[in-house]
Simulated scan of single mutants.
Amino acid sequence: MAAGARIALLIDADNAPAAKIGAVLNDLATYGECNIRRAYGNWTKPGLKGWIEELHPAAIRPMQQFDLTTQKNASDMALAIDAVELLYAARPEAFAIVSSDSDFTPLVHYLREKGAAVYGYGRAMTPEPFQSACTKFTVLEQLDEDDDEDDGVDQPDAPSRRRGPVPTAELKGNSGLVRLLRSAIKAAAGEDGWATVQQVGHQIRNQSSLDWRNYGYGTLTKLLTATELFELKDEGTPQVAVRDPREGRH
């Protein structure tokens, strides 16, 4: 997505931690300008007090939705309706949905079918259908405001909830991740077997939705290095190259 793209941030306050909003806004700044910011919930509930304290400092507009029954709130439906309205009225290039609720999966499919990117943010326990539907999904437990920027790649099969990098043995044991990395390197490689990490990231981007930081690594290069399965070299340029040694030497 082009720099400076307009992003609509829609927050399911009932299913998202207020303490992470600063990190989310910081992350979205790498994609474009987040000039539509709304949080949905029943603001009469004591449980949303943490969010109330964050709304004004973060310039987020509170959208009030009273609970219609004792077991279900109306916030999810209101968020979905507003997203569709914004798609045609404000026409943002992308949406950011902060929630751990899989009920938003059909909405994400719809927005992407209409050409909008969708960046999801949720807890590690967020159901896989919602994570996979997003253009990119970031686990909030792994998101810090001072995270490094990356050359851009998403991953499958997010690890269990944790802080810090996933150890090498666990990375090697993640067959989905290893298979994806190997196939991407092979597809992007030249005749000599080498591909730039940027090319590998581009190859993977259309296959996976999760954020590399979900594994505790700030860049794809660091993740590739940590697996200890690939050769990497830096020839004094901004590009780092990678090769799968199983493909043989040329």
Rank of each mutant, 00 (worst) to 15 (best):
G173P: 01
P127Y: 09
G152W: 05
R162I: 07
R6D: 10
E231Y: 06
A59N: 14
L171C: 09
L223M: 14
L171H: 04
I60T: 05
T168C: 15
P165L: 09
A19I: 10
D150F: 05
K172M: 13
A18T: 08
T237S: 15
K45R: 10
D67H: 11
A16D: 03
N26G: 15
L229Y: 01
A241T: 09
P165F: 04
A169K: 09
G216K: 05
L55E: 02
E85M: 08
K114R: 14
D82I: 07
V139H: 00
R182Q: 12
S99Q: 05
L68W: 10
I11D: 04
G248N: 07
M77T: 13
Y119H: 06
G176Q: 15
P57L: 11
D144L: 10
P57Q: 08
S209P: 01
S175V: 15
E191A: 15
R163N: 06
E93N: 06
L220E: 03
F66H: 10
R246K: 10
N206G: 15
G50A: 14
F230V: 04
A90I: 09
T227M: 06
R91S: 12
G176V: 14
K136C: 12
D14L: 10
I60R: 02
L28V: 07
L140K: 01
D211A: 11
Y119V: 07
A94S: 13
D148C: 09
D244E: 11
K172S: 05
G47N: 12
K20Y: 01
G152F: 11
E235D: 13
E85R: 06
S100Y: 01
P46R: 12
G218Q: 09
Q239T: 06
A23H: 06
R213G: 08
L180G: 05
H250E: 10
I36E: 04
R243H: 08
L86R: 00
F66V: 14
I97G: 03
T69I: 11
